[in-house]
Simulated assay, not measured.
Amino acid sequence: MTGLIDVVGGAVLDSLSEPGRLLVARRTAPPQFAGMWEFPGGKVESGETAETALHRELLEELGVRVRLGAELEAGSAAGWPLNARAVMRVWCAELVDGDPRPLQDHDELRWIELGNRRDVLGLPWIPADLPIVEALLDRLQGQTPGHGFPRRSGELIR
């Protein structure tokens, strides 16, 4: 128990094995983040595992089910710092069911091409998500084609 609020996010890719595009979501609230882009996700509820929370959040926010791949490693075991009170863990994922729609907390979803780092980083990201985006791009640059983010067993929760 870290005493911090645990948040989860999904780096939803068009493919875990050969990622080319990332699904991003534009926030509608709170006011300081409205209009900024982020990884969809949310808070882990009491009694939930982080993975279960991510599946629930992506279903609630986007109406999709996903297969989880590898977690993006953060600088600390607790996760990526969001602010003084919260940390986020982020998993790569690919769609297995549903057509993504902005159902909660977002007014637009967009698939962005990962091939042009400048275009990806040029979006107005929520500041806390930017280092995570950079880590994702760094990891993708180091991937051998066809050997993207490994899938995990038992990753689909209905």
Rank of each mutant, 00 (worst) to 15 (best):
V87G: 12
H147E: 15
P131N: 08
M88K: 14
E94C: 00
A93F: 10
Q143M: 14
Q141E: 15
P131Q: 11
L136N: 01
V87M: 14
I132D: 09
G98P: 13
P124F: 08
L109G: 07
I126R: 15
Q141A: 15
R89N: 05
R139W: 05
D99F: 14
V87T: 15
Q143C: 13
V133H: 01
M88Q: 12
P100S: 02
D129T: 07
D99W: 13
V120N: 00
P131R: 03
R85F: 04
G122Y: 01
V133T: 09
G122N: 08
A135Y: 09
A84F: 09
Q143S: 11
I132A: 02
E113C: 10
R89G: 05
P145M: 00
R110Y: 11
I126E: 12
E94A: 04
P124V: 12
D107H: 06
D129K: 12
R117L: 02
D105W: 10
T144R: 15
E113F: 01
P102Y: 09
P124Y: 12
Q141L: 09
P127A: 13
V133W: 05
L137H: 01
Q141T: 14
V96I: 05
L140Q: 04
A84K: 07
P100W: 01
P124C: 08
V90P: 02
G142M: 05
L140G: 06
C92F: 10
E113S: 13
L95F: 03
P124I: 07
G98T: 10
L95W: 04
E134Q: 14
L109A: 05
Q141I: 04
R89K: 09
A93H: 07
A93G: 07
L103N: 09
D105E: 13
A135V: 13
A93V: 01
H147V: 15
Q143F: 06
I126Y: 10
P145H: 00
D107C: 06
V87S: 14
W125K: 04
V120A: 02
G122Q: 02
G98I: 03
P127L: 05
G98M: 08
D99S: 13
A86W: 04
N83W: 07
P124S: 11
D99G: 08
D119C: 15
I126M: 12
E94Q: 03
P127R: 03
L123G: 12
H147W: 11
Q143Y: 04
N83R: 11
G98Q: 12
G146D: 02
L114V: 04
T144C: 11
V96D: 07
D119Y: 13
V133L: 02
W111V: 03
G142K: 14
R101E: 12
L114G: 04
R89P: 06
Q143D: 11
V87Q: 12
L103C: 14
